[in-house]
């Protein structure tokens, strides 16, 4: 029953494919964080189409001055050679500007991580533990906020609007997943969830901390991030040890009973 429905969906997808390419930009917002990532098929179309990208990238330059506002969007549209009214291309308004920031900075992580951990230091990078890579990449991503950090509280307020919360959380989940993927994490058990959930929480709180951080080079934010990551790995280690002890004791108990002749 279920597989046949999946099959029907697949066939329908094939038929719809040509027109879906254009319309897919906004419908992909509420899908679950992760879907199959192919290495030898071209990637699916990006979140923004060409016109949206032109307006948003021009508008993004106005964010430090005018914030994540409709005004910045209109200025961007004008810079990109569109009419002011063309900002109606972006029905989500200022939120699309925020999303542009989130998406482009997330996508910039992959080349950056290749630069940090690849190249001649690749062999050395193999030895770097996953936790260290996670910390480095999270810090790199936080630093990307520095140009707009004085406007970021407004952005957080917009993202916290009830109708925008799912899309914002989706972006956060994608970021946590991207960081773990780039760090070479291979976990495929429930720790997949706990790792991403704790990194999402830590990242969000570090970002909030950063909006009030006046220290040079955001040194205090970095220290904050390191403390939080250390705490979470400490909790993870304790839970792991407890689980190991419980399973060992249970297995030993069963084996003792078996050695006494119990038929279990």
């Amino acid at each position: 029953m279920a597989p046949s429905r999946a099959l029907a969906g697949l066939l329908a997808a094939g038929r719809r494919a040509p027109q879906a390419a254009g319309a897919g930009a906004h419908s992909s917002r509420f899908v679950l964080p992760r879907t199959y990532h192919s290495y030898d098929h071209p990637p699916p179309p990006g979140v923004f189409n060409a016109a949206e990208k032109a307006i948003l990238s021009a508008a993004y330059a106005h964010v430090p001055e005018h914030g994540f506002t409709q005004h910045a969007l209109s200025l961007g549209a004008r810079d990109a050679g569109y009419l002011d009214i063309s900002t109606s291309l972006l029905p989500a308004g200022p939120f699309s500007l925020i999303k542009y920031h989130l998406v482009t900075k997330r996508e910039a992580l992959a080349p950056k991580s290749a630069g940090i951990f690849g190249g001649p230091a690749a062999a050395q990078a193999q030895a770097v533990p996953v936790e260290a890579k996670v910390e480095r990449l999270t810090w790199e991503r936080l630093q990307e906020n520095r140009d707009v950090i004085h406007r970021w509280q407004e952005a957080l307020a917009i993202m916290a609007q009830p109708s925008l919360v799912p899309a914002s959380l989706h972006e956060l989940a994608l970021l946590a997943d991207e960081i773990y993927h780039l760090s070479g994490d291979k976990s495929v058990d429930p720790s997949w969830y706990t790792k991403r959930a704790s990194l999402s929480t830590i990242y969000a709180s570090a970002e909030l901390f950063m909006t009030n951080d006046r220290s040079p080079g955001f040194g205090e934010t970095q220290a904050f991030l390191q403390r939080r990551l250390k705490e979470s790995s400490g909790v993870g280690a304790v839970l792991g040890n407890v689980a190991q002890w419980v399973s060992f004791t249970a297995a030993a108990g069963v084996n003792v009973l078996r050695s006494k002749g119990a038929r279990i």
């Binding site: 494919a17 992909s28 199959y36 699916p44 179309p45």
Partner: peptide, 21 residues
């Protein structure tokens, strides 16, 4: 030319690998 996987195809492959694991 190879075709990019559609959203439905990616979802099918994800759920297939997930259920197999």
């Amino acid at each position: 030319k190879r075709k990019p996987l559609t959203k439905e195809q990616r979802e099918f492959l994800s759920s297939a690998l997930r259920v197999n694991q």
